[in-house]
Amino acid sequence: MPAAATRPGEGVTALRPRPSDVVKRVGSVATPHFDESRTREEFRAVKRHMLTRMQAGPNEAGLDPKTILITSASPGEGKTTVTLGLAMSFMFERGCSVVLIDADMRSPELSRRMGLSDEAGLLDYLEDDSLEIADIVYPTSVPGVFAVPSGHPRIIAPELIASERMREFLNTLHAQDPDRIVIMDSGSVLASSETISLAGHAGQILLVTAKGQSRRADIDDSLGILHRQAGPIDESRVAIIFNKTDRSESPVRYSQRQ
C-alpha cells in the first residue's frame, strides 16, 4: 500500500534508500489561466533549438549537449523560472526524461519552489560517499521530470561541485538513460564560483538575460569568465534567452478564442 500523501517536503528525512512508493511532492508552477499559453509556446521555441543541438551529438570537447547549464550574468534575471519552464516543456516530449538539478548554492530557489529545501541533495551526495544517486533524485508531480535539490549548505560547496564525483554523477545520470536531459539551475556567473565548474560539464549553456535589467558590462564579463575558465564559448555551445519581455514583444501571436 503506498504511503499517504504528504505535504511538500514532508516525510523524507535524508540519506537512506527509500521505499519505492515514497511520494515526492513538487509544487507545480502556477500556469496562466488560458489554455494556450503564450509562455508555453515560447518555451517550446527554446526547446526546439536545444533539441536540435542535442541531435548534433557531443562537441569537440566531448561535452554532452544533453547536459544543460542555465545561468545568468547577475542574480534575479529569471534562471529558475526558465529552468522550470523548460522542464515543463520537455515534459511533452515522448520518451524524454528530465532531471532538474538545483546547483545554486547561494539561493536555492528551485529547491524552495519544489518544496525540497530540507531534503538531502547534491552537496550531501558529493560529500558523503555512502549516498547513492537514488537518494537525492526525487520524482515530481510532472511525469518524467525528476529533481535534485541543492542539499544542505556547506562552506566547501564550490570545491564539492568542482570535484570528480560531480562529473561521475552527471555521467551516471546519462548512462542510466541515454535520452535523459539534465538541466542544472546554477547561480549567476559573477556571484557564484560553482557556475564556472558546472560550465565545464555542460554541453549547452543557456544565458538568461532580462529586458531592461541585464547590463552589457556584466554580460560581457560573464562570457569572458566562461570562455577563459570553462572552455571556448561560441554559438554552438552558448545561447541567450531574453526574459521578462512584454507580451506585445513576444514573437508568438494568438488570436482571440471565439
Binding site: P32, V46, K211, L223, V238, I240, F242, R247, S250
Partner: peptide, 14 residues
C-alpha cells in the same frame, strides 16, 4: 555579443 538569442520569455504575472 554575436550569440544567438534562441527565445524570449514574456513577463507573465502568473
Amino acid at each position: 555579443f554575436q550569440l544567438p538569442v534562441i527565445g524570449t520569455v514574456s513577463w507573465e504575472p502568473a
